[in-house]
Design a protein around this nucleic acid. Structure first.
Lengths: 239, 239
DNA sequence: ACGGTTCTGTGCGCACCCGTACAGACAGGA
DNA sequence: TCCTGTCTGTACGGGTGCGCACAGAACCGT
């Protein structure tokens, strides 16, 4: 088997799920995958709609969002290169309960949902890996549900910024107050105030569409326990 | 194979997951199950602790609860005879992200977690069934996360009462304001006020530890969209 | 019948965040 | 350079639910 066919993305894989596969299984799966770009605000699947493709994220961040009536959209989870978009397929669900929205642009390796089902049915370690990813996402959503019920805006914003920071390289988070407000389900000007609160605490700085993390420890102090509760690896991949 | 050994609960199974198994698989699994009673406020597993047994619920309702610092506990999901307590085991997780707390007493058929893992490994339709249950729970938690972010107390209370009503027989929900307040993450007296609001709308009545559903349509009107969004079978099992 | 416990109703000041509005700052294209 | 659209800062009245407190009511065991 050729390790690097012209159109196959066999090298420099970033996705942690794919990397966790034994080399043989990985190579076999990689041959099926199609590299795609994840554009800002691209919708990978919609809530209540069938999932056409699953996406192993290579780079970037994807928000899982619940649409409510009145056009509101509440974020309930984040996925990155440690995860896959389209996890309901693993559970045998054709349709997704959430929308998957590209928050930070990047790259992914995609596969038709039916193809993934076939690969899972072939046996091997793939299913167990994906189930672990489901469990991780589930834990995240569980914590978010509790957090939304009890914690105030500054705490939730701090948590959200930390989660984003964990999932990107560098300290600049490219997002507007408006967008954060939508995801957290609050008022835009509420975010402006909360941002300036964190800024006064010297945890962050910001400038027109960019929030820069200056001091993670202070940001963690300002956030609620929910951040630590679902944090994965204590060491950030990139300072 | 004897269809009804003395100590085996082979008859009158109520759990929908078990009933969905083909007769042979079901009989084989039932032989391993131990009938237990679910007592009010019994803890079936704790958050962050290993799951010892899984419980196929026969009767009663179990709350999945996230403990927050300060002793608060927020409910993120409900399980009944359509589900199983201990779903993280299916995902290969030893520990649970939530506590499982018996809300309405009843009965269950339990199995050591390791035993369930072995049964799943044996193949057959069990895994697919349990994964569907995981998906259902996940959808419920997702909706709860959004609901907690946006909807007010009366709407959330109405939704909660409807969900309970769907999961019991009869119209009397045995619960105190204090307990509801804990589960929804609000003040006890806030529930008292919200209950009297729904009572003035002639949707419910109440009396010391019991809330009676008088008029489901009105209750549905008072609730947020989140109720309908995760509702399963349109027809209630019991009027 | 009595006393302790649990459950519920009510009130008060307050914190948080809403909805709305408006104006200044900045960026990018014509 | 101007114009337009986006992004942000700020303000104000108002609603919702908090935290606390207290009292009445119902239940339970003795």
């Amino acid at each position: 088997m050729h390790p690097s066919l012209p159109s196959s993305p066999t090298d420099s894989v970033q996705n942690r799920l794919l990397l966790a596969l034994p080399p043989d299984d990985r190579a076999q799966l990689l041959a099926l995958l199609e590299p795609v770009r994840l554009a800002h605000k691209q919708v990978l699947h919609d809530a209540g709609e069938p999932i056409g493709h699953v996406y192993f994220i290579e780079e970037g961040v994807v928000s899982l969002v619940v649409p409510l009536e009145g056009g509101q959209e509440i974020e309930v989870g984040l996925l990155d290169r440690e995860g896959m978009v389209g996890l309901p397929v693993v559970l045998g669900q054709a349709v997704a309960p959430t929308q998957a929205l590209v928050q930070v642009p990047g790259r992914a390796l995609r596969l038709p949902a039916a193809r993934l089902r076939a690969e899972i049915a072939r046996g091997g370690p793939l299913l167990a890996l994906l189930l672990r990813a489901v469990a991780e996402l589930h834990a995240q959503v569980v914590q978010t549900a509790a957090c939304n019920a009890r914690h105030n805006l500054v705490e939730r914003l701090a948590r959200w910024l930390l989660m984003l920071h964990d999932r990107i390289s560098g300290d600049d988070i490219p997002i507007t107050h408006e967008m954060i407000a939508t995801l957290l389900g609050v008022r835009r000007s509420g975010i402006t105030v909360a941002v300036s609160t964190l800024e006064k605490a010297d945890a962050i700085s910001h400038d027109r569409g960019i929030i820069k993390v200056l001091d993670r420890p202070r940001l963690e102090e300002a956030s609620c326990e929910c951040y630590g509760a679902v944090r994965r690896d204590p060491a950030r991949p990139q300072a």
